[in-house]
Design a protein around this nucleic acid. Structure first.
Lengths: 132, 132
DNA sequence: AATTAACCTAGTAAAATAGTAGGAATTAAA
DNA sequence: TTTAATTCCTACTATTTTACTAGGTTAATT
């Protein structure tokens, strides 16, 4: 159960963008260099984050990606968009459909774990972690 | 980031053995049937759990697997043996060797997550979850 | 018009997980 | 003392997921 590189690069990149907040769009290639990843892989991550509205982008010459209001962006929201909603087992979260939940002792474990992870990660804002 | 089937089957199986505590050894095939898995796959899981001393086994005819003191076995200890120590990223836990930790903002996130997961799972005993 | 840079989809390579197979060792019962 | 039951152990294979690459399209700026 390892966190994906997508999520790790993604959080790293968001920290970088948060630190540069207010300085205008930053190009993909600059971002990729900062986080030691390839342009193409970084692009995929940024695409997902933009679709989730966690980063903004402007196209064309001098375009790039940027973050607004880092203090309102939680680490949880970033990881959920890059990590399949942080659903650790299929029987937790929104579309859990296991018919045996009622008499399943293990379910309570996954449910607790899921809730704790989300609430911890939601309690950390991007701004709070870059200040340290 | 999904939990492995090994860990899921493993916890299920431990719940079953905990419920049967004191009734003597239970054969592999009985256990496999109970958790809807194959004998061979179940065997691998039991092997790992036995090596971690979480289940006991007796060999030969009428042999099998059993659990002692379910109240002293934590869910965390089970999952750690089946899930690569629950190390979500390489830079947490015992053999973290990343030289950049000192000036890495994301590390604090992984470290917190790692600690919370472990402490939650350690706080749940096998006995406590089968009672519900 | 040319250039720069994001957008988007599809494909491939690598790694991890899931599961199978089969023989060796041990114990109990016949 | 032989046979049957049962765990032990290692290696292998198939499947799925993750990681990463490629290349054309669209939009904005100069």
């Amino acid at each position: 159960m390892k966190l994906s590189t997508k999520a790790r690069y993604g959080l790293k990149l968001m920290c970088y963008l948060a630190k540069e907040e207010g300085k205008g769009p930053i190009s993909l290639s600059t971002i990729a260099t900062q986080i030691d990843s390839s342009d193409k892989y970084t692009e995929q991550i940024l695409l997902a984050l933009r679709k989730a509205d966690l980063v903004k982008a402007t196209r064309g010459a001098n375009g790039g990606y940027f973050v607004e209001n880092a203090k309102d962006i939680s680490v949880g929201s970033i990881l959920r968009t890059l990590e399949d909603d942080l659903v650790i087992v299929n029987c937790v979260g929104d579309n859990n459909s296991c018919p045996k939940i009622a008499n399943c002792q293990t379910h309570v474990v996954w449910e607790n774990l899921y809730k704790q992870m989300n609430s911890l990660l939601d309690s950390m804002s991007l701004e709070s972690i870059i200040r340290k």
